[in-house]
Amino acid sequence: MSEPSAVEERPSHLKHYFVDSDQQFDSAKMGMWVFLVTEILFFGGLFAAYIVYRSWYPELFLMASTELDVFWGTVNTAVLIGSSLTVAMAIRSAQLNQIKGLIINLWITIGLAFVFMVIKYFEYVDKFGKGIFPGEYYAYEGIAHEKANIFFSIYYMMTGLHGIHVIIGIGLMLWLVVKAKKGVFSSKYYTHVEITGLYWHLVDVIWIFLFPLLYLID
């Protein structure tokens, strides 16, 4: 029962209300999973809207999805999967105490996320140019369906909310780079990297469902 010495051995990153680093790490991770559940239900509302409207207007979804570019959708899917891979590699680097590798992998992930957003930007601009706006601002004549705006309202809401998550992910990744450069992370303490990784993978998972549901209907 040498309590004083045990107190001295506590690493600086360990909060006083945790028994040890493992408990702190596992608690943070569980908290993140709880947050991811709320994210699933957050997007779940939009997926529900998609399913309801698709069951009402199946022919509209067939027609309208041809306006989306399958090629760029596929490229973006590959880009996001690639970024999930680099995040997993970043976590591996942190676990092995390779801080330089961690920073490089984070930068590649940020780059891929940026590529994703640039492609998304050009897809949006292309549609805006045709007058495809969400809701009542819809002004495109090319789809012979009176409810054509509904598909694109759902498209903009789902890809827009997903895009916001990608932008937040870029911000988190930059924050990790700053922290990593300050020497905060080591194989003993990389909770932020692990947890941001979980978030990033979930953003990838949501896109994995959005891609076939929006781009590949026909």
Binding site: K29, I40, L41, G44, A88, G197, V205
Partner: peptide, 29 residues
């Protein structure tokens, strides 16, 4: 992705349970 990138395969089973619960409530919705 969730099994091997998000490490659920090696993780505490409680986190898998959370994911399944989230998905179950989504199906309920």
């Amino acid at each position: 992705v969730v099994t091997f990138f998000m490490n659920l395969y090696w993780d505490a089973k409680f986190n898998t349970l959370l994911l399944i619960m989230g998905f179950a409530f989504f199906l309920l919705l």
